[in-house]
């Protein structure tokens, strides 16, 4: 039996997180027309630590809350919806890898929020750091590997103008000889699910945003959503969101149960979710017309994030390659 709807307990976890984000990190916090200060991301990360999110799926004796991949993935969807910095996922992964390596104190610091982590992404032989701030640890997902680096492994940081205005971007070179922890295959899966989860969340967010706008914006004496050209785009957004969510949750359950086809399902989830996120965020801009093209509208933030998330797991091509190699159901 495969059940893809949250049970009451799981829904409670989701609702609690969504409530916190709505209260402390509403989308209105993002001044869409300006770059978002690092301090604001740090505040949101602190709020999430207060809730114990970074240890959600770690066992209690490792300092976690004792839930599993299902709950964690559902939470990633909420974080995507609110455009929470991916550093929240990085903290989760760093804490898990440290706990695996028997470095409980450092894991506890991450879970408690006194230390933070960020993602890196390869650029040729060099690297980008995403939302580096004062992160103590760096998570790099590349190919079939997930690796944790200490901050010291990064050389000097050069700030670059990032595509995503809500997050700082730096170029650096990671000294790969200085890896702190080589993550297990289970941690790689966890990373892929978290990132795909954020993609699903923002896909759902732009679907709702587009549909809401299509109901209120009037032209030719009627809401634009009455026009099929718009209505049918909205329908496609709903299809994309539904398929991406379903595939993600199936993959999360398969990962938790360690099914032989888990890797296949998880790579399929990253691929489907990323295609959905990028197509939907673009379509949302089109549905908004001129306002959608402005910096004022939040529409562009979702598009940019959908591209940023893609490179947290090494890009779509890497997903395709891994998917074709994986063992199908």
């Amino acid at each position: 039996m495969i059940h893809l709807l949250p049970d009451a307990d799981q829904q409670q976890v989701v609702d609690a997180l969504a409530g916190l984000l709505q209260d402390r990190a509403p989308l209105e916090r993002l001044k869409a027309s300006e770059r978002f200060p690092d301090t604001a991301n740090a505040e949101v990360l602190g709020e999430l630590a207060g809730m114990g999110i970074y240890g959600l799926a770690l066992p209690e004796d490792a300092g976690g809350v004792g839930y599993g991949p299902a709950e964690e993935t559902l939470c990633a969807i909420e974080m995507g919806r609110f455009l929470v910095t991916p550093s929240a996922a990085a903290a989760t992964l760093a804490a898990a890898m440290l706990a695996d390596a028997g470095r409980g104190d450092e894991a506890a610091a991450l879970i408690g929020g006194s230390a933070t982590a960020c993602f890196a992404s390869m650029k040729g032989k060099r690297h980008y750091l995403v939302d580096a701030r004062d992160a103590a640890l760096i998570v790099l997902v590349q190919g079939d590997h997930i690796t944790l680096y200490p901050r010291a492994a990064a050389g000097s940081l050069q700030p670059v103008e990032g595509l995503d205005w809500t997050i700082s971007l730096h170029q650096t070179t990671l000294d790969t000889a200085q890896a702190a922890v080589q993550g297990s295959p289970a941690r790689l899966r966890q990373a892929l699910l978290l990132i795909a989860g954020m993609q699903v969340g923002l896909t759902e967010a732009v679907c709702a945003m587009a549909v809401d706008y299509a109901k209120i914006r009037e032209q030719f004496g009627q809401p634009i959503g009455a026009f099929q050209a718009i209505k049918h785009k909205c329908a496609d957004l709903a299809v994309a969101a539904e398929t991406a969510r379903a595939q993600l949750l199936l993959a999360a359950l398969a990962g938790a149960a360690d099914l032989p086809e888990a890797d296949f399902l998880i790579r399929a989830a990253t691929l489907v979710a990323t295609e959905a996120a990028q197509a939907s965020t673009r379509e949302n801009i089109q549905i908004h017309g001129g306002i959608g093209y402005t910096a004022e509208s939040r529409a562009h933030l979702f598009l940019k994030r959908a591209h940023l998330n893609e490179w947290l797991f090494g890009g779509l091509w890497a997903q395709r390659e891994a998917l074709l190699r994986a063992k199908a159901a």
């Binding site: 379903a246 595939q247 399929a268 691929l271 998917l323």
Partner: peptide, 12 residues
Amino acid sequence: AAARAETSALKA
């Protein structure tokens, strides 16, 4: 790759 992923999503 897309066909494989999307067929899986159809099942999902």
